[in-house]
Computed example of a mutant assay.
Amino acid sequence: MISRSNAKAADEPLAEINITPLVDVMLVLVVILLVMAPMLTRTLHIDLPKVAAGAPEPRDHAVTVSLDAHGKLAIDDREIAPDQLEPTLRRIATLSDRTVVNLRSDQSQSFGAVANLLAKISHAGIAHVAVVTANAEPRN
């Protein structure tokens, strides 16, 4: 018990809150949260729907980059070597800062191949990429 030097104050009850148990409980809750947080994050498998999309807007500075099923690259239907893609796109990008690349890829290509192609397009200095898809048939 805490002693006081004043005898008159000894008759009054001591009204101080001990916050040590409160801090202990809060620290335990924080530890539980930190342990449980990684377990709550998980990946989701998402099947993206096929939708009927409208025709894209015509653009003045659009270039089409195609990747076929055999891995051959083409810019505006002209075949190009993979090592020449980035320099060619860089030259096209210098003509206009509003250049848009329409990316066409065969569905049999892996995501990694498409991601590498997107990285090359980005390294060439092109910020706007549109992915071209086939129109899905509307369901009845």
Results as ranks from 00 to 15, higher is better:
116 N>F: 07
61 H>M: 04
28 V>Q: 06
47 D>G: 02
29 L>K: 03
4 R>W: 01
68 D>P: 11
105 S>W: 13
120 K>E: 15
93 A>Y: 03
49 P>I: 04
64 T>S: 14
103 L>H: 09
86 E>W: 10
70 H>F: 10
97 D>S: 14
9 A>R: 02
120 K>D: 15
23 V>N: 00
132 V>D: 12
2 I>H: 12
59 R>Y: 00
107 Q>V: 14
2 I>F: 04
122 S>G: 08
45 H>V: 11
39 M>Q: 11
99 T>Y: 03
87 P>C: 03
54 G>N: 10
111 F>P: 09
64 T>L: 13
81 A>Y: 03
44 L>R: 14
2 I>G: 01
55 A>H: 01
130 A>M: 12
84 Q>K: 14
47 D>E: 14
109 Q>G: 05
16 E>F: 02
112 G>W: 12
104 R>K: 15
40 L>Q: 10
1 M>G: 06
96 S>A: 06
137 E>A: 09
6 N>H: 05
46 I>Y: 08
14 L>N: 08
12 E>P: 00
123 H>V: 02
51 V>L: 15
74 A>E: 11
64 T>C: 02
23 V>L: 04
89 L>G: 08
56 P>H: 04
118 L>N: 12
39 M>G: 12
17 I>N: 01
95 L>D: 12
28 V>W: 09
75 I>P: 11
64 T>R: 15
56 P>N: 01
20 T>L: 07
137 E>C: 00
28 V>G: 01
52 A>Y: 07
55 A>Q: 04
3 S>Q: 06
15 A>I: 00
115 A>I: 09
25 V>Y: 06
12 E>D: 09
69 A>Y: 05
121 I>S: 09
86 E>N: 09
15 A>H: 02
106 D>W: 08
26 M>A: 13
113 A>V: 05
3 S>H: 04
102 N>F: 15
84 Q>Y: 06
98 R>E: 11
27 L>V: 03
12 E>G: 00
1 M>C: 02
103 L>T: 12
25 V>W: 05
8 K>H: 05
80 I>M: 14
128 H>P: 00
27 L>G: 02
32 I>Q: 00
67 L>S: 12
78 R>L: 11
43 T>W: 03
9 A>K: 03
51 V>D: 08
109 Q>M: 13
127 A>H: 15
78 R>V: 13
77 D>G: 07
86 E>P: 04
27 L>E: 03
58 P>A: 01
66 S>H: 11
74 A>Q: 13
86 E>D: 05
130 A>D: 14
33 L>K: 01
40 L>S: 07
30 V>P: 00
97 D>V: 05
20 T>W: 05
108 S>R: 15
86 E>Q: 15
12 E>T: 04
37 A>K: 09
118 L>I: 04
103 L>K: 14
139 R>D: 04
18 N>V: 02
42 R>Q: 07
